[in-house]
Nucleic acid binder design. Structure first.
Lengths: 335, 335
DNA sequence: CTGAAAGCGCTTACAG
DNA sequence: CTGAAAGCGCTTACAG
């Protein structure tokens, strides 16, 4: 049996194709006996409705598009697991779009997504320019495709719902933790590239620093180890530092390595903290203190929110913020 | 303009819808002037062919399914980047299926994939049971859907093409390297769970060990840090060891941490090596010697192979093996 | 080179 | 509760 169609099922079950369709999609509208008979035939024939025909006729695809910047970022990958698990529960298929920065204009990809007739879009890119945001808004409004930002927050507008943690607060808390360690020269190590969430972490850092009447010091470097290692070595030759809050665990670990090579002791001389609570933090020595970001949950809740939107349910809060926590380990003093 | 259809374009360009279709799909069959006119209208109207109608009518979806076990494994994520980049070149969309071990029977997922009418399937799961393989074969033969195994090798059969490196050889080479370090009690640290590729790494290890007339010692533990840390601590209390080949970088790093905590020096006392050349290897201290697996390329070549299959092109070699290399760092002696 | 028409496999009012 | 029929938006022989 290559592919059984609805006609084959209808024939074998001696009903019309309309009844087959109902037995599948609106079982309660079909007499139990008929339904059973039809379902049995479906089973026997291994029938599966052709997704294209279904999508064309119903104008619903039960497919969502997930747009991600770069799969190999640890946070994105784990978020995908959360998204996929919830998508499965609600029977949505996932069309994956990985952005290749700059090469394919994002507009083209979005057009493609519209053509694919997805029922909803999950946007995981953590840097959004105003232009991109406007484009997303256009998609939402013109094409009426529900849209959720996951682990991204667009500061200006609430129009597109988002799910993340309160990064500003997290940045504030982790900085405060280092201040409690008795540190006075605390640097935030952020990225050269602008990411919305890193801006928020920086804002939280600045709030804590200013509250404590310390001098804010933000260093921007690269997420690439080979680059930031150099950079750390150079930069901290003539900078006094006793505390580091890095926007990513891996950057914090990278810093710790450089510190050790310069015979600086952690946490005795410098307290170090990161963000995310990845495997990097656990494998590092000393183990890294960091903000635990519930990244799986962010994906799951984002997908769940999208299903609500696709069902036209009312959303009470357009900006969902999940709880985070501080994980204290050996890279800070923790008195 | 919500969604322009082919009729809108045909009307505005004063041609039939057949001509519009041709202008898009077989431009050479349309008179240049007509074509230009049509294309201009398409541009103006922002027309994109409805993917469902197109799929239904043409019985091709220009979509491939990618089946993965767990997104958050570093190798899978990076492979996805390679897959996506090539998919884009050939205009294929990606339907992502993440397996939730045990919960949803894989058969159901595969049925779903068949229903989705994908043109091809990339299978990234690195453990395949005989039953699963038979099922994949059935899909390939009954439904005629091209299939490629990526970074997985099924030992028994060549029927489904695969792309990977020569893991047996890599296992052999890295073990040999430790033997050259002068090690005699070399353990392979593998996983409790059976993965095809780890079997191959073990086979290579065994070959090198037996060639050198040493005693093979395979320890199986978990990829989870909390578990394997305990396990290492316990196990190596009464086992002499001077060399470790771990099947994954992160396991090797985890071992190095335990060793250091037991005041064992690396590489002086024990040479340690891993597999993959991930960021873990670079962030570790000492930096980890390992087999470099061109994981992005494996994804890219796998996708490329699939496009050939989908175009009915002939495949000369069903088992593509990409080159790997040994990256020597400070966790081995490297005389 | 172009158009009219059939058909892809479903869903969904509309009757009955 | 069930069936006949229109329609979803395309592609593709078949004529011309």
């Amino acid at each position: 049996m290559s592919k059984a169609t609805i006609y084959d099922v209808a024939g074998a079950a001696r009903v019309s194709l309309a009844t087959v369709s109902r037995a599948i999609n609106n079982p309660e509208k079909v007499k139990p006996e008929t339904r059973e008979r039809v379902l049995r035939v479906i089973e026997e024939l291994g029938y599966k409705p052709n997704a294209f025909a279904k999508g064309l006729a119903s104008r619903k695809s039960t497919t969502v598009a997930v747009i991600v910047p770069d799969m190999s970022r640890a946070s994105i990958a784990e978020m995908m697991n959360g998204i996929a698990d919830i998508a499965r529960v609600y029977k949505y298929a996932i069309l994956l779009y990985i952005l290749d920065h700059e090469e394919t204009p994002e507009e083209d990809i979005l057009k493609e997504i519209v053509a694919a007739q997805v029922d909803g879009i999950l946007y995981l890119n953590d840097e959004i320019t105003e232009k991109q945001y406007d484009f997303l808004l256009k998609i939402k409004n013109e094409y009426q495709i529900p849209l959720v930002l996951t682990n991204t927050i667009y500061p200006g507008s609430d129009e597109i719902p988002s799910v993340s943690i309160d990064y500003e607060k997290a940045g504030y808390e982790i900085t405060k933790k280092l201040i409690e360690d008795g540190r006075h020269n605390i640097y935030m190590v952020s990225t050269v590239r602008k990411y919305m969430v890193n801006d928020l972490k920086e804002a939280g850092y600045l709030r804590a620093i200013s509250e404590a009447n310390l001098t804010p010091r933000i260093m921007r470097t690269s997420g690439r180890i080979s680059i930031n290692t150099e950079h750390f070595n150079e930069y901290f030759k003539d900078h006094k530092v006793d505390g580091i809050v890095a926007v990513r665990d891996s950057i914090a670990v990278s810093f710790m390595n450089v510190a050790r090579e310069n015979h600086v002791k952690i946490p005795e001389d410098i307290s170090v903290a990161g963000f995310q609570n990845t495997k990097y933090a656990l494998l590092a020595r000393p183990q890294l203190t960091c903000v635990d970001v519930p990244i799986y949950d962010i994906g799951a809740v984002g997908m769940r929110l999208l299903t609500k939107l696709m069902n036209q349910e009312d959303i009470t809060e357009p900006r969902v913020k999940l709880d985070h926590s501080l994980v204290l380990r050996d890279s800070t003093i923790n008195t």
